[in-house]
Design a protein around this nucleic acid. Sequence first.
DNA 1: ATTGTAAACCAAAACGTTTTGGATGTCAAC
DNA 2: GTTGACATCCAAAACGTTTTGGTTTACAAT
Lengths: 344, 344
Amino acid sequence: MPVTIKDVARRVGKSITTVSRALNDYDDVSSETKALVRRVAAEMGYTPNRTAQRLQKRRSDTIGLVLPTYGPRFSDPFFSEFLAGIGNQTADFGYDLLVSTRAPGDEEMEAYRRKVQGRQVDGLIVVRTRQQDPRVDYLRRIGFPFVAFGRVQGTLDFPFVDVDGEQGMRQLVRHLAEQGHRRIAYITPPSNLNFAQDRMAGFQAAMVEQGLALDPSLVVEGELTHRSGYQQTQRLLALADPPTAIVAGNDLMALGAMRAAQEIGLRVGADIAIAGFDNIPMAEHAHPPLTTVDQPIYTIGRMLSAMLIRIIRQEEVGEQQVLLQPSLVVRQSSGLVTQSKEGG
Amino acid sequence: MPVTIKDVARRVGKSITTVSRALNDYDDVSSETKALVRRVAAEMGYTPNRTAQRLQKRRSDTIGLVLPTYGPRFSDPFFSEFLAGIGNQTADFGYDLLVSTRAPGDEEMEAYRRKVQGRQVDGLIVVRTRQQDPRVDYLRRIGFPFVAFGRVQGTLDFPFVDVDGEQGMRQLVRHLAEQGHRRIAYITPPSNLNFAQDRMAGFQAAMVEQGLALDPSLVVEGELTHRSGYQQTQRLLALADPPTAIVAGNDLMALGAMRAAQEIGLRVGADIAIAGFDNIPMAEHAHPPLTTVDQPIYTIGRMLSAMLIRIIRQEEVGEQQVLLQPSLVVRQSSGLVTQSKEGG
DNA sequence: ATTGTAAACCAAAACGTTTTGGATGTCAAC
DNA sequence: GTTGACATCCAAAACGTTTTGGTTTACAAT
C-alpha cells in the first residue's frame, strides 16, 4: 500500500490539512512544522497521488496528442523528432503527455472526444491539419484549449504554428529555375492536407513567376512515403517528354524519387535534379545529399507545447498565430552540373 | 460545467447509485430503469469523469512509455512504427498511453519513478534494454508490472519480447560468407545496449564458424544514426586493407555506410557488400535495396502492449519470455555480383 | 399472520487530495 | 482585562465516481 498524506499526518501528529499545506509551502504553517513534515514525508517515501490531486484541482496537468497514422507500417522520421520536441517541453513544464495513434477518420474523432469529455487532458495538440479539419472545428466549437501544427482553409482565429510552405516552395522552384530547369515536376502530398495546398500554391506561383509552363501531366499526387515517391517518379520518367527536375512534397518521397531515377541510370544532381521538403536528418546523408527546405520540427514541437500550456494557464500568449519562414538548403541533388556545395 | 452522474440522477429521479449501476449494467437494476438512465445520460451528454473513476477504482487504465531520445534531433523511423503498434493495441484494450521522452540517465529514472509513485500508470513498457538496466532493476525490485523490449545480462525472470539478434546476425554473416566475402567489417551499436551484445556474439560466432579471421580493426562502434554509419564507414574504407563487406547494427547506419561507399565510387552490391538490421520501410527502397534482417516492429509493439495489459489484469499470460526469430531479407546491396533478387 | 425470496432501489462510505472557513493561542497595546 | 493582530493550526466539505451494506416492496409459501 502506498503511503498517503494521512499516514504522514498521523506520524507527525498534525492534521491532514497542515501536512498538505506544509508540502505546498503555504505561509500559515510554521517553518519548523514545514521542515518536520517534509523530512518525515521524504523518510516515509510519500508521493502525492496524482489522480486525487487532479480530481480535487479539476485539471489534469496533461496535454493530449493524437498521432494520425497512415497504415500499419507508420514510419515517419518526421514524427519522432516532433514528438521529442513536444515531450521534452511538456516535461519541462511539469505536464504529462497522453498519446494516441489513430488513422484519420471516425475513430480519430472519437479519441479526441474521449480525451476532452473524460477530462483526461487540459489541452490538445492537433497535428498535420487538413484543409477542412473536423478536429479543429470540434475543438473550436466547444472552446477547448488547443494549438495546431498547420493552418486550415477559412478563418484562422485559433492558435497555430505553421511553416510558410508557399514561400519555401517558391524558393525551391526559383532555385531550380536558376539552374536552368524548365520542365519541373511536382509530387504533391495528399491534397486534403492543408500544407499540400500551400506548397502547391507556391509551386504554381513560382512557375508562373519564372515564366515556365504549368504542364498538368507533371503534377502528381503521392502519399508522403518513400514508396509512393518512387512509384510516382517512375511514372514521371516514363513520360514522352520527362521532367528535368522533380520536387517532392516531403523528403521521404524525394528519397524515393532519387532511387527511381538512379535505377534507370540517371545521375541525380547531374542528369536530373531532385529536391524535397522537411530536411530530415537523412536528407543530409542521402546519396547525393538532398536539396530541401528546412522545417525546424523539434523547435516547432517545443513551441506548440509552450504555447498550449500558456493558453491552459490563461497566461499571456504573445503571438497566437506563428508563421515560420523556412530556409532553403541547397545540396548536391539539385544541380544540373556536379557541385560541391553543402548546406545545413 | 460538464454534466455529472449527479445531474443525471436528479433528472431521472433516481439515486446516484442506481444511475451508476445502470450505466455499468449491474443486474440489480430493472431493464426499464437501465433504458431510461441510458437515454437520459446520452441526451444530457454525460461522460464519466475518468479521473474520478480512477481514484475510486485505484487504477489508471493507463500504461506508460518513456522513449529514450538521443540528442535533440531524435529521428528514428524505428520508434514511430513501434509507437504505432503500442498505441493501437492499448487503445483497442481501452487503455491510455502516457509517453515521456528523456535521454538515458537520471532524468529518465526520475520519469519512471514519478509515473510509478504518482500512481499514474498501471504498468510500463521498457524499450531498448541496456546490458545492465537500472529501469528493469528498479521495476523488478518494487514489483511493478512491466514488460521489456529486449533482454538484459543476467537473470531473465521478467516478461520481455526480444528478437534473437544472435541468430539474425549469424544468418547475415553466413550469407555474406557464401557470397565469398572474407573480410567482413561490423559497425556495432553502442555496446551498453543489450542487443549490441547479442548481435556482436552472433557476428563473432558466425565468423569463427565460417573459418574467417576476426580482425579487431574491422569492428567499430556507431551510434545508430545515419551520420555515424557514414563516418565509421569512411574510416573502414580508408584502411590499408579495407573490408569487402560491411554489416551495420541497424538500417540507419547501413544507409549511411552505403553513402560513404558510393561517395568514393564503389558500387554497393558489386564492389562492396553492405547489410543492415531492422528492415525499416526505407531499406526496401534504398539504392540499391538493402539486405537486412527483418524485425516485425509493429507486431512487437502490439505484443508488448497485450502482454502488459494481461499482466496488469492478472490474467493468464502464456509465454512471458518471447524470443522471436528474425528473418534474413536478401536484397541487392549484399551481392558481389549484381543480382536481381528482391525480398520482403 | 408469518416467513422467505427475489427484485429494485439507495444512503453512506470510500478513494486521496485541496480548499474553505474558521478556531485557538500568544503577545502587545491600550 | 479587554481588544486587535498575528501566527499556527484544523474539521469538514468538496471533487465525481464506485462499492458496501443495507432497505423496501411484492408476492408466494407456510
